[in-house]
Simulated scan of single mutants.
Amino acid sequence: MFTSQSIGGNTPHTNFDARFRQQGCSFGKKFGGRFGGRHPWMHKLQQFMNDSRPANIEETDNTFIISLYAAGLQKEQFKISLNEEVLTIRYAAPEDTAASRYIYQEYQPASFERSFQLSNKVLTNEIQAIYTDGVLKVTLQKNPETNKPAQEVPIS
């Protein structure tokens, strides 16, 4: 839980790095160089993170809304397709000619793909998508014929 504790002064968190180094440890020694440098494990971690963009799925009375977190990406590079009740969202990252200008880089827009099984529960001809504020929202209208309300089962 978030607390409103002050960050200044002698709070336990402000001198963490200094205390860590006093104990004979440093990020540079531990990871074999400047922390954040290009290491094979970092490439694998970055690839995993790029391939698994976080998504929320919200259900309302009439729709399902998929919100895919995709900050800093170009709307034109998204492709949304539907094939045999599987909705696929793809992003094809453009070639970056400015990569050599970075002196330090922690993130890089990379290509990814996410798929969602629809199971005949949506009207596929009424799918809408919008990309604003770093979130791609795909709205899927429920199919009234296949979306029956939940039934309560009595317990005896």
Rank of each mutant, 00 (worst) to 15 (best):
Phe78Ala: 03
Gly134Asp: 03
Thr139Phe: 09
Thr124Arg: 06
Ile66Gly: 01
Phe78Asn: 05
Leu82Gln: 11
Ser67Glu: 01
Pro94Cys: 12
Phe116Tyr: 15
Ala71Leu: 15
Pro109Asn: 06
Thr132Cys: 02
Tyr131Met: 05
Gly134Met: 04
Asp51Pro: 08
Pro109Glu: 00
Ser100Cys: 08
Val138Asp: 05
Glu106Tyr: 08
Glu84Ile: 04
Phe116Leu: 05
Val138Glu: 04
Phe78Gly: 04
Glu76Leu: 11
Ser67Ala: 11
Glu84Gln: 14
Arg114Gln: 13
Ala92Asp: 10
Ile103Lys: 00
Gln74Met: 09
Asn56Gln: 11
Thr88Arg: 11
Ser119Cys: 14
Val86Ser: 10
Glu58Thr: 15
Ile80Phe: 04
Arg114Ser: 12
Ala70Gly: 07
Leu136Val: 02
Glu106Ser: 12
Asp51Trp: 02
Ile80Gly: 00
Val122Phe: 05
Arg114Ala: 13
Gln128Leu: 13
Glu106His: 11
Ser81Glu: 08
Tyr69Ser: 09
Glu126Leu: 11
Glu113Tyr: 09
Leu73Trp: 03
Thr132Phe: 01
Pro54Ser: 08
Gln105His: 10
Arg90Asp: 13
Asn50Thr: 12
Asn120Cys: 04
Lys121Pro: 10
Ser119Gln: 12
Asp96Gln: 09
Thr63Tyr: 14
Arg101Ala: 07
Asn56Ile: 02
Pro94Leu: 13
Asp133Cys: 09
Leu68Gly: 00
Pro54Ile: 02
Leu136His: 02
Tyr102Glu: 00
Ile89Val: 14
Ser111Cys: 15
Gln74Pro: 00
Ile89Ser: 01
Ala110Phe: 10
Val86Arg: 15
Ala129Arg: 06
Glu85Cys: 09
Asn50Trp: 07
